[in-house]
Design a protein around this nucleic acid. Structure first.
Lengths: 213, 213
DNA sequence: GTCTATAACGAGATAGAC
DNA sequence: GTCTATCTCGTTATAGAC
């Protein structure tokens, strides 16, 4: 459980890249050091140099994942003047992962939560808190600008949206069907914006919004 | 991979009970025959008699889970005259599992999907189809009786609801906080019924509906 | 920083006695 | 139907050479 990692090391970063994909696709209990070593072309022992235990590797995985999320949320803050566009950009983050056949790292770890070492469990909870805190302020901002309608506390809407998006990925992925995600995500966003269903003949045309992963 | 199980066997049923809880709490890759054998007080070899391989055990687990679901949905059909009450009853099925610290069996297996043997994968997909088909007709019925408003196809609303509820359980469980589930579930149902947020001072008082696990 | 070698253990699964 | 005994393999992890 020694922490020898996280430093200006390029090999460690490649280990994290590979392990991250394994966790998002197969789960933390669904891959081994041998899998990572084979793909990286090194031995298992070499991996143990960078991450003494699998728990250390997992914790580093979550830390990096949270840091990357923070950067992406900051990019949305900087690039989207309207709060509602930040909201759509946020949905796009999830869509992009699913398009690669990946679950959200922490959604996977949430499923396996009770088998994880303590430090990983704590980090998973922090991840969701980080998401909800950011979303809460975005939703409050969107409500203030009049682009969405909140029927309760912004925090509650944030909690519901995170849960809904994670669930949409979870269920859509086995079907290999991105459209399933879109249906659920559109429904979630629509419950805030009140937009008509895309293509439905119920209300006026909704403004087409661009959104990329 | 021989199928020697599923018969009027009481031991097999106890094996399934124990294994089911392990899967819902720790995941299919998070427990072993040894775990089940220890809790049942038998040897691993005895388990292999009832379920030749772990994949056989897993497939039997899903089959029984789907059968039990069908019975519960039928009970809702029989016990709830109003479609909207069947909807609330359905939400209660999820709440009850989470209250026991369990994830939906097939939500867990959806996360681990890419590590599962083929027969289990197919069974997982059937489970979600079964849920969505039942919900679709309930939602269509509720729309017809005027207790909910659909902004698109009933099938889409069903897909979104299943995904949302599974996600609500997934995220709420690590926090050990049933209230997190309630927040997300209430938001999902509210997006159909249009009810005001409970206790919010935004619209007229919403009718208090009783809902039990 | 990466290697070989191996320890120490647990996994899923099988054979054959009772 | 359940047992003992065993097999084989994969797992995490460590020791020590290079």
């Amino acid at each position: 459980m020694t922490v020898r990692a996280i430093r200006g090391d390029e090999t460690a970063a490649r280990v994290l890249d590979i392990a991250e994909r394994f966790v998002q696709v197969r789960g933390f209990n669904g891959f081994s050091y041998a899998d990572v070593a084979a793909e990286l072309g090194v031995t298992k022992a070499a991996l143990h140099y960078h991450f003494a235990s699998k728990g250390d590797l997992g914790a580093a995985l979550i830390d990096r994942y949270c840091a990357r999320l923070a950067a992406r949320l900051a990019a949305l803050d900087a690039g989207c003047p309207a709060a509602v566009d930040r909201l759509h950009g946020y949905v796009g983050l999830y869509r992009g992962m699913l398009a690669e056949g990946r679950l959200c790292l922490c959604a996977m770890l949430a499923a396996e939560y009770h088998t994880l070492p303590g430090p990983m469990q704590a980090a998973v909870l922090r991840f969701f808190g980080q998401n909800e805190a950011w979303l809460e302020s975005v939703l409050a901002g969107a409500a203030a600008e009049g682009s969405i309608t909140l029927r309760g506390p912004a925090r509650d809407a944030a909690v519901a949206l995170v849960a809904g998006l994670e669930g949409a990925m979870l269920v859509a992925r086995p079907f290999g069907d991105l459209a399933r995600f879109e249906i659920a995500a559109a429904s979630l966003v629509r419950s805030l914006t009140g937009d008509a269903f895309p293509g439905a003949a119920l209300a006026g045309a909704a403004p087409a919004r661009t959104q990329r992963p």
